[in-house]
Simulated assay, not measured.
Amino acid sequence: MQWFLFVLILIGQCSFFTCHLYEYHFIQERKSWDDAQSYCREKYTDLATVSDMGDLERLTNPPQTDAWIGLRSINEADIKEWHWSLPGEKYNPREGEPEWGPNEPNNGGNHPENCVKITLSQKWYNVRCYHKLHFICYNDKVILIKEKKTWDKALDYCRANHSDLVSITDQQRWVQDRAKMADAEFVWLGMRYTCTLDLWFWVSDRLVCYHHWAQQERTEGCDRATATETDGEWYKKADNEK
């Protein structure tokens, strides 16, 4: 069977160490958390998901007041479970990153405080969701290119016309959403196997820490690159396939 692969590329800010797949927008309007979420999903991608505090340094208009981010508790219990607005993304706190303000999050007593705002000090506070605040939306910058190319030609095209083939360092929700738009089964990613070093690597010069290989697919082989199926699983493909 012949596989036809399309090209997935990344626009935007890439450095030797990191690739940023999204940009942030501070919205001056005041809305409840639910209305803010609806606004962001209509005009951008979603309410802001913050993977690290450096993300918010890329705000197009830095906030001068408290603002909603896309973090919300999904239950009313004393022990809350926090999820990002982006479907399927659970909040996983990282050691050494003190996002929450003092004594936060708390349960709010008889008045549940299930939504999260960020303050000027970049600390997070859970508050009642019906409050009307400014808010932060984000927009992803992953683009699907519907042209048939080998992996090397795809890499050259992305670097000449945009930034690079996409590298996935921790989450792939944005990539998977774009891949679903392809009318082919597979889409190239910016990962290749090198026989010289005997490892897989991203074109952004990052080693592969996060991965989403299909079962029994993570095997070595010269002249192999990585493609994602539209369901998000990764497959190794000969890099001369189009």
Rank of each mutant, 00 (worst) to 15 (best):
Q2R: 12
I9E: 06
I11H: 07
Q13A: 08
Q13R: 14
Q13F: 15
S15C: 08
F17Q: 14
F17M: 10
C19L: 13
C19I: 15
L21T: 14
Y22H: 14
E23L: 09
H25F: 14
I27E: 05
E29V: 03
E29Q: 15
R30T: 08
S32P: 00
D35I: 01
D35P: 01
Q37G: 05
R41I: 04
K43I: 01
K43D: 03
D46F: 13
A48F: 10
S51F: 14
D52E: 11
D52R: 13
G54V: 06
D55G: 02
R58E: 04
L59W: 06
L59C: 10
T60S: 12
N61F: 14
P63S: 09
P63M: 12
P63G: 02
A67W: 05
W68F: 10
W68D: 01
W68Y: 05
I69D: 01
I69M: 07
L71Q: 08
S73G: 06
I74S: 10
E76Q: 13
D78C: 12
D78E: 14
D78N: 14
D78R: 15
K80Q: 14
K80N: 08
W84E: 00
L86M: 06
L86K: 14
G88L: 05
K90R: 15
Y91T: 03
Y91P: 00
N92E: 10
R94W: 08
R94Q: 11
E97G: 02
P98M: 10
W100M: 07
W100Q: 02
W100E: 03
G101Q: 05
G101W: 11
P105W: 12
N106E: 08
G109N: 12
N110C: 10
E113R: 15
C115F: 07
V116D: 00
T119V: 04
S121H: 13
W124Q: 03
Y125G: 00
V127N: 02
R128L: 07
R128S: 05
C129S: 05
H131G: 05
F135N: 00
I136S: 01
Y138K: 13
N139I: 03
K141D: 06
V142M: 07
V142W: 08
L144K: 09
K148M: 09
T150E: 04
W151C: 02
W151I: 00
A160G: 04
N161P: 03
L165T: 07
V166M: 09
V166E: 07
Q171M: 10
Q171W: 14
Q172T: 08
R173C: 04
R173T: 11
W174G: 00
V175D: 01
V175F: 13
Q176L: 11
R178F: 04
A179H: 07
K180W: 07
K180M: 08
M181G: 03
A182D: 01
A182L: 06
A184Y: 11
E185P: 02
E185S: 06
F186V: 00
F186W: 03
G190L: 05
G190Q: 01
C195K: 11
C195I: 05
C195A: 02
C195M: 07
T196G: 13
D198P: 00
D198H: 10
F201W: 05
V203K: 01
D205Q: 12
R206M: 06
C209A: 12
C209G: 04
H211Q: 15
W213D: 03
R218F: 07
A225V: 02
T228K: 02
E229R: 11
T230K: 13
D231H: 14
G232N: 05
G232V: 11
E233G: 03
A238V: 11
A238I: 09
D239Y: 11
D239G: 00
N240Y: 14
